[in-house]
């Protein structure tokens, strides 16, 4: 039966699938890590820096949030070589994803810092704490509780966005599906399995985000309709 042949062929693609999964994990991990570090720094500057800094960061973040990730990847992959920087697909993908991550995380962090009640800042100010001391002892610890749920949600979005690097030929999990479906023309089966792969990674993170949000004490009463 056709289906058995297809399944056999799929099992034969196991090494390729593993490579794809590894690439997705690597790109996502590096992208999320670098993006978080840069994003936090950007977010703190955006929330408390001086006006020109805030405007510049705001403009860049707007640029990245206003254009499709696919176009950003194309820009990095095709244009940087013209400027003399040779890039392979993996590096371009990681740079693009890190940049995307940093911009979105910047907004989440800035929002969290801004959500800390003004009274807290005033109390710290009134005790004579310097700006950095205020941030470190009073604002950031409280901001983290607000930042954590949307941050985890953003991580899920970024892991899914990593699939777009397949467009520049990087053999990630999605591209594995695209390659395999050429030989095994059963789109439902092939991409069903690919989807399952992403699901196994992303669903737990989504569940964690939901649990964190609930523990933070969502103020909304469950309305019984």
């Amino acid at each position: 039966m056709m289906i058995w042949q297809q399944l056999q062929s799929l099992v034969g693609s196991y090494p390729l699938a593993l490579r794809g999964l590894g690439t997705t994990v690597a790109v996502s991990l590096i992208g999320l890590l670098a993006g978080s570090l840069v994003g936090f720094a950007m977010g703190m500057l955006r929330a408390g820096g001086n006006r020109p800094v805030r405007l510049v960061i705001g403009a860049w973040v707007d640029l990245i949030r206003g254009t499709p990730f696919l176009v950003q990847i194309f820009l990095i992959f095709f244009i940087l070589p013209e400027a003399g920087i040779e890039l392979e697909a993996f590096t371009a993908g990681v740079i693009a994803l890190s940049n995307l991550a940093a911009c979105f995380i910047c907004e989440i962090v800035a929002g969290g810092i801004g959500a800390v009640p003004k009274g807290q800042v005033e109390a710290a100010l009134a005790s004579g704490l310097s700006r950095w001391q205020r941030m470190r002892h009073v604002v950031l610890p409280q901001a983290m509780r607000i930042i954590l749920p949307p941050l985890v949600g953003q991580y899920v979005l970024l892991i899914k966005d990593s699939s777009v690097v397949s467009a520049i030929g990087l053999t990630d999990l999605t591209r594995v599906g695209w390659l395999v479906v050429q030989r095994v023309p059963n789109g439902l089966l092939v991409f069903g399995i690919i989807g399952l792969g992403y699901f196994i990674v992303c669903y737990p993170l989504l569940a964690i985000a939901r649990r964190i949000e609930r523990r933070m004490g969502a103020a909304h009463a469950e309305v019984q309709l």
Binding site: N186, I194, C202, Y203
Partner: peptide
């Protein structure tokens, strides 16, 4: 909703693009 939210749009797109003809 959970299936959509935990998988990438691109994979969903390919799923339909390569999968619907099969049906």
């Amino acid at each position: 909703i959970d299936a959509i939210r935990a998988t990438p749009l691109l994979a969903q797109l390919y799923f339909l693009y390569f999968g619907l003809p099969r049906l």
